[in-house]
């Protein structure tokens, strides 16, 4: 356990020195603040508060941005260290391979978590000081959006680690990371939409659609944030979907957690067998 923390804290320290932490936190905060100020404009007539508007726009943006940041941070984690020769030295120390992988993952996930919590938290502070009274449920929705964003970041960090252990070449790992992002974030939903349109709504059943949405961490995140709370789904226009999609909140969280655990487990298995 101690070894894990030593490796994780080194990873965090490197990210701080690289300005990764500062850069991602500032980026997240800037986006969140912009959206929360812009989001204050259309409120009043539709009967939703500024927090709900912010949650919808921010979570939609998070789906694109956070996976990209997580993959950029993680695709080099293993293959890069092997390439530079630092992995050989590290593994000659009394550490197990799973400890190296988990420790590094913990460090990177912590960097993403920190950037998300601080960045989005800043938007929360801005909203709170806005003067409009905000219901407790809205705050709960906002907090769970931050929490699920951290999970989403961790899931794509884990996918990045998988890409990083899969191949021997940094360029290939970067390519796989881009493919993962394109696939899960853009193409998957397009394909799903295409399937629905082509089938005229009767091609695949609701049940199948639910499972297909769960098979993508980005969609699980979207469902969780847009349908998880009534006040949000009313504004997001997903109230109808939420009524049909009888996927419970704990299940969505479990799916996100599985998207963290499964790639990481696979990466660990691959890394343990890897000839350095």
């Amino acid at each position: 356990m101690n070894t894990l923390l030593i490796i994780a804290s080194k990873e965090v320290r490197e990210a701080v020195r690289n300005r990764w932490v500062v850069a991602t936190t500032l980026l997240m905060a800037a986006l969140a603040l912009t959206l929360s100020f812009l989001g204050a404009a259309p409120t009043g007539t539709v009967g939703v508060g500024p927090v709900e508007v912010t949650i919808v726009s921010l979570s939609s943006l998070t789906i694109f941005l956070l996976p990209l940041i997580a993959l950029l941070l993680s695709f080099d984690a293993v293959v890069g260290e092997i390439d530079r020769g630092t992995m050989t030295l590290l593994l000659s120390y009394p550490v197990a391979r799973w400890q190296v992988l988990f420790g590094k993952f913990l460090g990177h996930a912590a960097v993403i978590a920190l950037a998300t919590v601080v960045g989005y938290g800043a938007a929360g502070v801005a909203l709170a000081s806005g003067g409009t009274p905000i219901a407790e449920e809205s705050w709960r929705a906002f907090a769970s959006m931050i929490g699920s964003s951290v999970l989403l970041g961790a899931a794509f960090t884990a996918l990045g680690y998988l890409a990083s252990t899969l191949v021997r070449d940094r360029g290939t790992a970067a390519g796989i990371a881009v493919a993962i992002w394109l696939g899960f974030v853009l193409l998957y939903d397009m394909a799903l939409l295409g399937m629905l349109v082509a089938g005229g709504g009767s091609g695949i059943g609701v049940e199948a659609l639910n499972w297909l949405l769960l098979a993508n961490p980005a969609d699980a995140y979207r469902l969780f944030n847009l349908t998880g709370f009534k006040s949000v789904s009313a504004f997001a226009g997903t109230a109808g979907l939420a009524a049909h999609a009888n996927v419970s909140v704990p299940l969505l969280l479990a799916v996100l957690a599985a998207w963290v655990a499964a790639p990481l487990a696979l990466a660990t298995a691959l890394f343990s067998r890897k000839q350095i």
């Binding site: 490197e14 020769g85 050989t88 030295l89 000659s92 120390y93």
Partner: peptide, 18 residues
């Protein structure tokens, strides 16, 4: 065992920012 072993690899690299 590794606790009692020292290794100096060829082309050693350290993190430049530490």
């Amino acid at each position: 065992i590794r606790r009692q072993v020292g290794f100096l690899p060829e082309n050693v690299a350290f993190h430049p920012n530490m």
